[in-house]
């Protein structure tokens, strides 16, 4: 079966039926929970301190429910209205926004203490290319620039995603670095074709503000 992001844009692919199916599938729930936990681990937030987080591509709130359980306050963005409807039904605590992250975010500088994103980045690379504003590099640049601004200086952003190719990883990572981020790719279970998971870990600080010391990305599990 071809990958969902090749079939239709997310707001079409995740229509009412697909949104419900996706959310109520227990295997999806378990995988989402596991990836959210791992993303939180990589986010490395200060122990016991409350934080305001951004959930990029929050969907039906499967990751948000975990943020709720962990006691975080969060804001969720998604482009698929049907997914957000399901999130409302599930009564998640976060504020939800219908938003195309490829258009750039509209938050004041330093708003969020961290960001997570589960299974979303690859969608950003599948934009229709009929207009210059919707080319993948244009969308990625708007997204990463505005995300970098919206984060506090010490914040991280962790993206679990399903890269389609090495070229795509390079494209995404190089644009993120150009937009001011540091960091890199963490691969969990690198030797298992099935269990392999990619996490792009970005640090908003860096440069002068972090005292010039480049922090290292965690080694894979």
């Amino acid at each position: 079966m071809s990958r969902p992001e090749f079939q239709a844009p997310p707001e079409i692919y995740y229509g009412d039926t697909e949104a419900k199916k996706y959310t109520h599938n227990t295997r999806n729930q378990a995988i989402q929970a596991e990836m959210t936990d791992r993303a939180l681990e990589l986010l490395n937030l200060p122990e016991g301190q409350p934080a305001l987080l951004l959930d990029i591509g929050c969907g039906s709130g499967l990751s948000g429910e975990i943020l709720d359980e962990e006691g975080y306050t969060w804001v969720g963005l998604d482009i698929a209205p049907s997914m957000l409807e399901v999130a409302l039904e599930r009564e998640v605590e976060g504020d939800l926004f219908l938003h195309d992250i490829g258009q750039g975010l509209g938050f004041r500088p330093g708003s969020f203490d961290g960001a997570i994103s589960i299974s979303v980045l690859q969608w950003l690379c599948n934009a229709d290319t009929t207009s210059p504003t919707s080319s993948p590099p244009a969308r990625l640049t708007r997204f990463f620039t505005s995300l970098h601004a919206a984060l506090t200086r010490s914040a991280r952003a962790v993206f679990q995603f399903y890269p389609q190719s090495d070229d795509q990883v390079t494209l995404i990572t190089s644009i993120a670095m150009r937009c001011g981020f540091e960091g890199g790719l963490v691969v969990d279970y690198p030797n298992s074709q099935k269990a392999k998971k990619f996490f792009l870990c970005l640090f908003a600080g860096g440069g002068e503000s972090s005292g010039g010391a480049r922090r290292k990305v965690e080694i894979p599990k």
Partner: peptide, 15 residues
Amino acid sequence: SNGIPNMLLAEHEIK
């Protein structure tokens, strides 16, 4: 609408 703000921009409004 229904508690969810629509932040989508039209093509000519995108940076």
